[in-house]
Write a protein that binds this DNA or RNA. Structure first.
Lengths: 222, 222, 222, 222
DNA sequence: AATGAATGAGAGTTCATTCAT
DNA sequence: AATGAATGAACTCTCATTCAT
């Protein structure tokens, strides 16, 4: 249904003949990604994708059974690293979780600073309503992993008295919120700070507020 | 929203034909909004819109020159109240701006809790890339007014020593971020808290963090 | 799903405006029939049909939701008269059913002598395998009515001693067989007698054989 | 049907590569026949045929220059035995030809009872209009031999006074008609007698009618 | 002001056929 | 002898837009 795994990490196994076939699905996905991001899924023609990838329209259907499969393949290709990243978060932390949350945010920001990585969630946000399957994949593979992990971290921090008594579910959204909003404003509406994306500045500011904002109240109750 | 309204605002120069001729465009926009939100702009046909508005396809073109003009009209109609809302924010505050920020957030949340209001930015996000004119309207009329106002507020708070020394531009994004992320998660990805949207819970949590997070550091400079 | 009934028998009700719309479905079906018969369903383009009917391709889809619906509409339009014809056969006959069988055959032959009528079963035979829905319609509406009626007639003749003791089910097939084979040979394979279709000659010969062949054996058992 | 057959008929000039090179075309035809019958010529792809025959799509084109050539090859392969069968009918019979006609019918029925044999004429009927070459082959090689032979037989019977005075050309169609109709009803429309095809029952009934039906009228001329 | 029949320019998808390997 | 990647021409179906009425 989606592209065959190109196995891009095993370079010495490929014979020199018929080179293209192995790389093609990825090339097609690259072309599709660029065009989907630039014009939107609905306004992109399979023919445009094919031409950008240096193939004929028919050849695209050799690798992907439909246009929508391209979108799906794109999302699936992108979530691999992200899922691993989410897995890397320890589930139980002994002390104050705030440093871990900071690391999480910096990692996520670093990840999303790469336009290649960023374009997929951008795409997903845009097409989510019209293509619920796509939204579901992203939700299941990325969001449904990262959010609960963050929430658990906060919950433990609250239980251990390391952070203020807050609703962990909502607080998790407060943690990622500024990053999400920043990307939305910059990428979708073109409201970028003077010197470019300035992700670091955003994260620095956010962490400064967050760190103090989560500090437990001296002497007790919220 | 689509009340009978027989000839109330129309001058009586014409005979009583053209019943509610003035209301028609709004009815068409209502229909368009509902369908665009439900199915996306690209998957909605002009005929569907016409039928939902109780007109024929051809009649839609009496009021709007093209399908895209519907989208544009939709955005223009929606930004009126919002722009006024942004205007209502005082530019200069004598003391701690945090209560004002809190009021702003609660107002915005209350506003966006109405699905009717929320659907327009949702629409804009989705079609922004394919229809930059649309994104531009929204950016110019809404975002380019609200964000600088917030930023100025924070800047003044910093200058007055009422809030921690933070980058006002980024801090503004930290203020709206959780709200944006919350709506995105709920509306686009369907990741809703148990009891519904729970906007109040989100805002409460966010303000608790924000209030403490912006508290100026005792003894001075960051 | 199929064409709206053009109600061709009520001529004075139609206003003179918008004349075409009422006649169009039939015109399209006429064009489709001609092309399907000449080239086969699979080798006929919707565009060809449209052009032959004097419309654009898109207009065809105003009246029929799909290409297959054209085939179906064609069959449905054709079976109306045939079904009535089958109904006209009396179910119980007091005496020798052979004259009735003869009348049935001559009626059917007369019917099928009209190329317009003939083309539909020809079409059905050809597309039956690929489009079982079509075959089913024809089977249910035409064959499943005519064959049992014939079979019953023969059965009653056997019971009454008016015709030889034969298996009525098979005998019914022997009654229609020569007509079927004749049309198949002529229309599909182009093996026509010298002077044209010669349906009368075929029926005369067939009835001569049939009449004698069904004559009860004098004195008894088959 | 597709036995291993290692190098049995191939000359040993080449190394033992090209296993059963001679059998390949037949295997391809077998695959094509099965698929054409099941799905129709138009709905069968060359790739399906190739895979069913255990080859690649490209290899099919080593044996057959086009898809239509497969259909043609199929018909040509099938008419060999049938042509011989038609040849086997004696042209001049001294006495009553009715027993010979009976034998002919039983032979033909036996032949067509084999689904393998039956599928070719079924195919031909279906594709006849779209591929007149195919129809022509079948007509020339099979029908144009069998029908005149039958007709001659009847003509001689009439001349010798062994059978009733009938039009031999039409009578020939009356002889084969029930068989044709029976197969059409069963195979195309799925109207089968309870216990299966029941070809014997059909032939028995038909011959009973035919035998009496062709009996010369006592006392002379029609 | 309003209709709805009609258009025509594509869109996605399929497949017979070719050809370098 | 055989592969399978690649093509390109069709095909069905959709829909924003127009226009006579």
């Amino acid at each position: 249904m989606s592209a065959p795994d190109p196995d891009s990490t095993a370079p010495q196994s490929a014979p020199k003949f018929r080179r293209r076939a192995e790389a093609r699905p990825d090339e097609v996905l690259d072309a599709a990604l660029a065009l989907f991001v630039a014009q939107g899924y609905g306004h992109t023609t399979v023919d445009q994708i094919a031409r950008r990838a240096g193939l004929s329209k028919g050849a695209v259907y050799l690798y992907f059974p439909s246009k929508k499969a391209l979108l799906e393949g794109l999302v699936r290709r992108a979530i691999g690293p992200v899922a691993g990243f989410a897995q890397g978060m320890p589930e139980h932390v002994p002390g104050d979780p705030r440093p871990l949350i900071a690391r999480f945010l910096r990692l996520a920001a670093g990840h999303l600073a790469d336009p290649h990585t960023l374009s997929v969630p951008k795409l997903v946000i845009r097409e989510a309503m019209a293509a619920p399957e796509i939204a579901q994949i992203y939700r299941d593979e990325v969001l449904a992993r990262a959010l609960p992990a963050l929430q658990a971290l906060i919950g433990q921090g609250v239980a251990g008295g390391f952070i203020r008594r807050v609703d962990p579910e909502m607080a998790a959204r407060c943690v990622i919120g500024p990053l999400v909003a920043h990307l939305l404003l910059s990428e979708v509406f073109g409201i970028t700070p003077e010197g470019g994306l300035a992700l670091d500045r955003l994260i620095d500011t956010h962490l400064a507020i967050l760190d103090a904002g989560l500090e437990p109240v001296e002497g007790g109750r919220k």
